[in-house]
Design a protein around this nucleic acid. Structure first.
Lengths: 231, 231
DNA sequence: CGCGTTCTTTGCTCTTCCGCAACCTTGGAG
DNA sequence: CTCCAAGGTTGCGGAAGAGCAAAGAACGCG
């Protein structure tokens, strides 16, 4: 395998305070791998043997209920750690990590986690910040699901994805990974039918534009209004 | 203030691996305080200046939406840390902590957090486990809200409270803190009317018994069935 | 002991959104 | 080029549950 370049990690929060030589040491212990769209990096319930850093692509964190329904808990953008069960004392993954697009990720065996935390200044702190951010996001999700109507939730979900992984294109901002109506319904606790109806209506009003598996938001401000001003 | 006894902390996860003398040192830096039912220990958005350990009572973790609705994120039972924003790199509290019943809590200034983590074996690990548990609980909440019907969610919520803070009484298990129909609706994303109707129906079927602000579950198994077998 | 506040119950109406069904479109595989 | 699977659209009931209204308990305070 090609030797990995230090610049991959430079500037990413968990490694931002480290020397070049330290980053080198970390990289030399990493395994790098490419995953096709739709592949599972790991699945819910599997023993947590490695933790990961997403270099490119988008990870969809998914839980499946006993009745077989899927719920999308989270999308992870490039540059973030994922599968960090060891950080919270779990020995199995609480959800599955599916590649929403082609992905490139590094990984390390979990036994290195405590060593990294101890040896590298800022690694633990920054990782826990990531965790804190996710906790906050979940809290926001719960609040949304508990208080907002479907239309507002779908608008919020679109905005969240646009903010986190939006790519500027002519006439708007496009969500940078493939996403279906069904996916959105799994994020918002509704049905693909309702999502389709909403998107059709918004398209007629000129708020969004969409093709198969891709959505571009042309009037973010209108969506903010529809979302009940929370994001 | 009366000197606190070491036995208060012995056996609680964050302190379980510590020597008596270490616990003594921790206690000597703690402030102990009693709070009346309904009091806020801290409020959403306030600068996070202290972290807390609940010795007795129950804390209700509440978020308020822009439209003034309340959502109950979590109940915290005695023996757990709360207000641990510093652990996840936040400098303000993300939610309010309200006493569901009369409470007794210890607290420390946040600046001691990193010292505790460094000096006391297991403190950080165990605290992050608590955090992990909460993350898991949120994930379960999101799944519930996204996929289950109202009746199932209310049944789940009752079961969760019974499991976490149930007190055995004759003919069933009582939720150990005062709780109203409105509270339950804020936990499950419904209205107090619907909750009242459900409880009435269940009371007729002999599954629960309730008086003002108190609920006893007499047939937990029936509730498990109603909840769609998830808890 | 009376009064007001807080909590609870229950009926009715009305809206939202789900479930079902049918059909259309797009893109990839062979 | 054709076919097929995956994704998307749209119409139409029907049911779940929200919203509104009104009244009845329980408790706590003066």
């Amino acid at each position: 395998m090609a030797r990995l370049d230090e610049s991959l990690l430079t500037g990413l929060p968990p490694f931002s305070r480290l020397e070049r030589s330290q980053i080198r040491a970390i990289l030399d212990q990493a395994t790098s791998r490419r995953y096709d769209e739709g592949t599972a990096v790991f699945r819910e319930g599997m023993p947590a043997e490695r933790f990961y850093l997403l270099l490119d692509g988008t990870i969809r964190v998914v839980r499946t209920t006993e009745t077989g329904e899927q719920v999308i808990a989270l999308h992870i953008p490039p540059g973030q750690l994922f599968g960090i069960a060891p950080a919270i004392g779990r020995d199995s993954y609480p959800a599955s990590a599916i590649c929403a697009a082609e992905c490139l990720a590094l990984s390390w065996p979990v036994r290195l986690w405590s060593g990294f935390s101890a040896a590298y200044d800022g690694f633990a702190t920054e990782s826990y910040k990531t965790l804190g951010g996710r906790l906050g996001e979940f809290q926001a999700r719960v609040t949304d699901l508990a208080t907002k109507a479907v239309e507002q939730r779908v608008a919020s979900a679109l905005l969240r994805m646009v903010n986190q992984s939006g790519r500027k294109v002519e006439g708007g901002i496009e969500i940078a990974f493939p996403i279906t109506r069904a996916n959105i319904s799994e994020m918002t606790g509704t049905t693909l039918h309702t999502v389709s109806r909403l998107l059709s209506a918004w398209e007629k009003q000129g708020i969004v534009r969409s093709t198969r598996k891709h959505i571009t938001v042309t009037e973010p401000h209108q969506l903010v209004l529809l979302s009940g001003a929370a994001g």
